[in-house]
Nucleic acid binder design. Structure first.
Length: 252
DNA sequence: AACCCATGCAACCGCGAGCGG
DNA sequence: CCCGCTCGCGGTTGCATGGGT
């Protein structure tokens, strides 16, 4: 025996919502609220719709303060940053973007942002000349090159990732800074020139910049800022002015 | 003009989590 | 603790539209 259907499929309308249905639903919820029961709501509102369908329509389209239209570069940055950090947790990402819905962001990612990433100019890892991206992006990116073997330590860095100095310089003997932050995210700071690293944690969202060679360990892998200065954010208190530029981030 | 294909987006579906009886 | 119900989430589908041939 399978799962019981959430509604009587034979008696519910499917497909696009008509303006009349929209206004019925909107009026009902504005007057009575959802009553904490979406399953019962369509009947009370006089709609021949599944409760789940009503909920979706309200949350994604009818509810007040929904923002439609173009995403701003700032919103793009937030989505990139969070996606690189937590993956496709659209509801969590949506919570950081007032007025945007998880469905909107999911669609936007699948249709636009993913392609932005695909248009990235290939760059390679100096250790093996391979192009690679964070695992969370790979299923959508069709990157065909085999990622390099996991390297959970900076090159030539032989210590466990539990301590270090204040920077990592891959031209010289390493002395890493290791900072355990909130969210279970572990950071390794590094500056190619020696001390340009800027990695921080902004309002529980990760944001970072830095100079060539900046490293950040996330969920068992290390993000590596290939180019110098492109991500170089100006630190102001606990905020990095430029945020994340995924284009230049690599993972190994 | 007709067809095909890509794109964008709204909506659906199935599943796991949470909660109350 | 168990069971059933509902919610919320993320993946997927399907349709409308527009551009290219």
């Amino acid at each position: 025996m399978g799962r019981a259907p959430c509604c009587d499929k034979a008696n519910v309308k499917k497909g696009p919502w008509s303006p009349e249905e929209d206004s019925k639903l909107k009026e009902y919820i504005e007057k009575n609220g959802t009553g904490g029961n979406w399953i019962a709501l369509p009947h009370k509102a006089g709609l021949k719709r599944c409760g789940k369908s009503c909920r979706l329509r309200w949350l994604n389209y009818l509810r007040p303060n929904i923002k439609h239209g173009e995403f701003s570069p700032e919103e793009d940055n937030i989505i990139f940053t969070l996606f690189a950090t937590i993956g496709s947790r659209w509801s969590i990402i949506a919570a950081q973007l007032p007025g945007r819905t998880d469905n909107d962001i999911k669609n936007y990612w699948n249709t636009k942002l993913k392609k932005k990433l695909l248009g990235i100019t290939p760059a390679t890892h100096p250790r093996n000349n391979q192009v690679f991206f964070p695992p969370s992006l790979q299923p959508n990116l069709m990157i065909t090159s085999t990622p390099p073997p996991p390297l959970l330590h900076p090159p030539n860095y032989n210590h466990p990732l539990v301590f270090g100095g204040d920077h990592y310089d891959h031209h010289q003997q390493p002395s890493c800074s290791y900072v355990k932050q909130e969210l279970g995210v572990e950071f390794i700071n590094g500056g190619g020139g020696g001390d340009h690293q800027i990695i921080n944690n902004v309002n529980n969202n990760m944001s970072f910049g830095g100079d060539e060679g900046s490293l950040m360990e996330v969920n068992g892998g290390v993000f590596w800022d290939h180019y110098g200065e492109i991500n170089g954010g100006v630190l102001s208190g606990n905020k990095c002015s430029t945020g994340l530029n995924l284009k230049n981030m690599y993972y190994y």
